[in-house]
């Protein structure tokens, strides 16, 4: 199984709390340029976030001091990172190469990478999904999807 977290500053909750504090503090800067009434709600929420994350940090560090093991975020970080990357790559491909081309490649690719490798199943699923999307959205309702920025102009 996974290794216990040795460094008490690298516990997921601690990192998250520090992250929230830092981002909230940074987002607090623009409120100084706003009118009082405009700044009121965002500033209140950001200060609330900072205060609450400090509480979270303290409670997590207390747990660390008590030698309580932090649960790892995931059992399979590589798979998670891979999944995220594929989703982002799919969105970018849709934007730049076009929706249909990207989708036809992405459905079987993602399923294949993550363990479903039945060729007939992959082909059938891709065909059914892309076919019905085209039929309903494009053919039925003349809804346009991105055609790919690369091909424009």
């Amino acid at each position: 199984m996974s290794k216990p977290q040795n460094n008490r500053l690298l516990r997921p909750e601690t990192l998250t709390a520090v992250g929230i504090t830092a981002i909230s503090a940074a987002l607090l800067v623009p409120t100084f340029g706003m009118r009082a009434m405009s700044a009121l709600l965002p500033a209140a929420m950001l200060i609330g976030l900072i205060g609450l994350s400090i509480l979270l940090l303290l409670s997590d560090q207390r747990k660390a001091a008590a030698n309580e093991e932090a649960k790892p975020m995931t059992q399979a970080p590589k798979r998670v990172a891979g999944a995220f990357l594929l989703v982002v790559a799919y969105a970018l491909a849709t934007d730049f190469v076009g929706f249909y081309a990207s989708t036809v490649i992405s459905i079987p690719l993602v399923a294949w990478v993550f363990g479903f490798r039945h060729p007939l199943g992959l082909a059938a699923a891709t065909l059914v999904v892309v076919g019905s999307i085209w039929l309903i959205f494009d053919f039925g309702m003349s809804q346009e999807f991105p055609s790919g920025r690369l091909w424009e102009k």
Partner: peptide, 15 residues
């Protein structure tokens, strides 16, 4: 199958 379901949902989310 889970990977297939996942990949199809990703497409649906996008559209």
């Amino acid at each position: 199958p889970r990977p297939l379901l996942g990949s199809v949902i990703i497409v649906l989310m996008l559209i």
